[in-house]
Design a protein around this nucleic acid. Structure first.
Lengths: 208, 208
DNA sequence: GACGACATACCGACTGGTTGGTATGTATCG
DNA sequence: CGATACATACCAACCAGTCGGTATGTCGTC
């Protein structure tokens, strides 16, 4: 469904505007009028394509999943032979994305879910699907890396995949607080170090 | 300054209400009327104590720093002899706090900074002070743990202290997305595992 | 200890601008 | 012609902030 031949119609202009405006100001503080102005369309066009602001929020989260999904699917780290190198390559790729203003590299759904998790279940669920779906793309590589090393740890591939997302989301919060990507990069370095230690042959099963 | 004899006046009722309402709905979606209703005071009282909603946001962040600061200052993990045990005890203490509804254990300033980092510098700075100030309480223990082990790694105590905050903030986002603290606990377990590996005598200097 | 002057704390009706949403018109395309 | 894709005008509710008022100190003076 969707993915019509990419015409520059009002709907996709609104979704593109939503990504940048909501990442800058948050969902609640973003007004429909502002979105229309940023997209260069009228309010009539907005409510033609979306029944409500909430529906746009859900659509924006799905659009985010599509565009970022495509970005990561074609990233070079998938070519590594060792599955651990693919995981480390993913993290390194995330670090490379830390460029430009804070609003340019932070995560739409991480921002939105904070504001909507209680008030707007539809948006929260869309954000949850986006985060979990993205984390799942890491699971098979994590699992393969474990199999290669005959590891049977007390953590699951899913929990480690989600942990990488937690570190990234937390790094974005710190970047927003400090006004730049420097600390986010430091935190991603700590994540890389954790993965290296976790999969290092010396310490396959440190306890139990 | 401040710390008048803790009278149950309108100001502190409003600050208490702000902590719970803003953590539930976010800063932008929280209205002044709603805050007044939750605190059981009138709008006149609100604007008597705060010149604007923004000023309340700053005061709420500072109030958050004070109350959480007191909570952590009297926590039992400070009694451990080994500085690493104090750091691990802190993380374990954070895990123990994951109880009740999501709005009860998540972080006010982590939530607020996402919405205000661009639009409201005063609130962003107050959140930054809160996060960084809290992280600093970990630095001396991290530094001591490094000294005990004669470690000279390529990361700083400050960056590790902030990394713990990134993991916690990210864990809160995941908890909000998934509707419960389970994944947050998993992520905190990964953080504990990282600290143990990082300070384990076998791997003091894995590279360079 | 009565009294005036002033400050603090709070009340609640009101306001002007904003916001999400609607109603209706129109142009283009198949 | 009918459906899709917009545009324009409009509205009722809401929101942050204001303003005149009251109740309660509290400090100095005589």
């Amino acid at each position: 469904m969707s993915t019509q031949p990419a015409k520059r119609d009002a709907r996709s202009k609104l979704l593109d505007a939503a990504l940048s405006v909501i990442r800058t100001k948050g969902y609640s503080a973003t007004t429909v009028d502002e979105l229309c102005a940023a997209a260069g369309v009228t309010k009539g066009a907005f409510f033609h394509h979306f029944r409500s602001k909430e529906e746009l929020g859900v659509a924006a989260a799905e659009y985010w999943s599509e565009t970022t999904g495509a970005l990561f699917a074609q990233a070079p780290y998938h070519d590594c032979a060792d599955p651990l190198d693919r995981v480390l390559g993913y993290v390194s790729f995330r670090k490379d994305l830390l460029e430009g203003g804070v609003a340019d590299f932070t995560c739409l759904v991480g921002t939105m879910v904070q504001e909507t998790y209680q008030s707007t279940p539809a948006i929260r669920d869309a954000c949850e699907r986006s985060i979990s779906g993205h984390a799942e793309t890491l699971e098979s590589d994590i699992e393969a890396a474990m199999r290669v090393r005959n590891m049977c740890p007390d953590w699951t591939p899913a929990s480690l995949a989600l942990h990488t997302q937690a570190v990234l989301q937390g790094a974005f919060i710190l970047a927003k607080a400090k006004g730049g990507p420097a600390i986010a990069a430091d935190s991603i370095d700590h994540l890389t170090r954790y993965l290296q230690l976790l999969f290092s042959p010396a310490t396959t099963d440190p306890q139990s």
